[in-house]
């Protein structure tokens, strides 16, 4: 069972990923760290616009910024992505157990039906 905090965290991750520019930034960072200027290069967006996207990624914990001088290179942190990829993994056993119980309940109903038919 996931907690509300996990859910909030996932929501933030999903929100950060629900934007093509931010996904492109992450894909670029997957190849290695980069400065904001380098990240802005392939886009027609202004530097402040790119910075805004990076801030969203930072809040979601997907990007970590270095402390080095004014360059402050961005580095990818894939940890929240691992949480995303395990969301379904965590829910699958919950559903499997539910359907096992549904199966049991159906068997119980059949037995009851059989018993009442025998009574008739």
């Amino acid at each position: 069972m996931t907690t509300a905090i996990d859910e909030d965290r996932l929501t933030e991750t999903f929100a950060a990923l629900a934007n093509s520019t931010r996904r492109a930034i992450l894909a670029r960072l997957a190849e290695g760290g980069a400065t904001v200027n380098e990240l802005a290069e392939p886009f027609t967006l202004t530097l402040p616009a790119i910075s805004k996207h990076i801030k969203v990624l930072e809040r979601a914990g997907l990007v970590v910024r270095g402390q080095r001088a004014q360059y402050r290179p961005c580095v990818l942190d894939a940890t929240p992505l691992e949480a995303v990829s395990t969301w379904a993994d965590r829910y699958r056993p919950v559903w499997e157990a539910r359907f096992d119980r549904m199966d049991d309940y159906l068997r119980q109903l059949r037995r009851q039906e059989g018993a009442s038919e025998a009574d008739d």
Partner: peptide
């Protein structure tokens, strides 16, 4: 994703990204 009604392609993008990583 709660704030993106048109989430088409999102899962694919995520898979691609994860594979990339």
């Amino acid at each position: 994703p709660s704030d993106s009604p048109g989430a088409a392609g999102w899962a694919m993008a995520l898979d691609k990204l994860a594979a990339n990583i």
